[in-house]
């Protein structure tokens, strides 16, 4: 009865009332997403992590997060929900909840992805959707990055001013693709001043007014040109490079990245601050 009365009320709204309400609710949804994305993330002693997410529309479906483990490691996650706008944003929130729950109770990134898939599979299949997620554990003691992949693009590692490459691949099906999946882990050892960039495909698929894509080669060059900078300056350089390339052309996909840079000394996790979320 309540539902029927509510539906009739909405149907009776004028177009102006509907537009006004929708604008207000989308703005509120954007605020919720920005605040949730803008949660705590660790500041790393003798090293830095940063994260930024720029939705193509008012709200988006990209996601990144950090979680400090009891053993002192840092768990990093980045994800990209299928689709755009409000539907993707709703599933991004679902992904965030699944990661935060899984990160508390799993030993490594592979187990985290398996737990997320277990939690989300049925809902995503019902909705005909999926999420690509890359998850990594950073151990500042031995500078080891252990990672697992659920269908996401492979991060880049910058070893020197002349060397940037994908980290060694590890494959796994996207979250929501198949039930009961295992996600094999791989690892790399990072040297001092190495940089790892986790990113979503909205960066390399950003388009200019002639539909030319930004592509990974441009991203490589920005990373090499700015390898000596700190993570926030590198992040800004990448965003500026994309803006310079797209020349204000509205983008179809969200742009999200997480940067990890090892400095010259041993890395310890010491405190928290907030990530920068550009509107």
């Amino acid at each position: 009865m309540y539902r029927r009365e509510f539906s009739q009320t909405v149907d009776q709204w004028s177009e102006e009332e509907m537009n006004h309400t929708l604008k207000r609710e989308i703005q509120l949804a954007r605020n919720i997403q920005m605040k949730l994305l803008n949660g705590e993330h660790p500041e790393v002693e003798n090293g830095k992590v940063s994260g930024v997410s720029i939705p193509a529309r008012l709200i988006g479906g990209d996601y990144y997060d950090f979680h400090i483990l009891p053993n002192g490691k840092l768990r990093i996650v980045i994800g990209d929900v299928m689709g755009k706008g409000i539907p993707a944003a709703m599933l991004m929130i679902l992904t965030r909840g699944a990661f935060r729950s899984a990160a508390e109770s799993t030993k490594g990134p592979g187990e985290t992805l398996a737990a997320m898939n277990k939690a989300m599979y049925q809902d995503l299949r019902t909705l005909g959707s999926f999420v690509t997620v890359f998850c990594a554990d950073w151990d500042p003691e031995n500078r080891q990055l252990t990672y697992a992949n659920a269908g996401h693009n492979i991060p880049l590692v910058v070893r020197s001013k002349d060397e940037v490459a994908e980290i060694p691949k590890t494959k796994g099906v996207m979250i929501g693709g198949l039930p009961d999946q295992d996600y094999p882990e791989n690892f790399i050892i990072l040297d001092e001043e190495n940089i790892v960039l986790f990113y979503t495909d909205g960066i390399v698929e950003a388009q200019d007014d002639e539909r030319e894509m930004y592509r990974v080669e441009r991203l490589h060059q920005v990373l090499l040109d700015n390898h000596h900078q700190d993570v926030h300056a590198i992040e800004e350089s990448i965003v500026n490079s994309i803006h310079a390339f797209t020349q204000g052309v509205p983008q179809k996909d969200d742009i999200t990245m997480v940067l990890l840079k090892v400095n010259q000394e041993k890395t310890d996790i010491t405190s928290y601050n907030s990530p920068v979320i550009h509107p």
Binding site: T132, H152, N153, I154, K171, V173, M174, G177, L178
Partner: peptide
């Protein structure tokens, strides 16, 4: 398709 896991889905099904 390979990265995302399309072929793995087909294989497992």
């Amino acid at each position: 398709f390979d990265t995302i896991g399309v072929f793995q889905i087909m294989e497992q099904l």
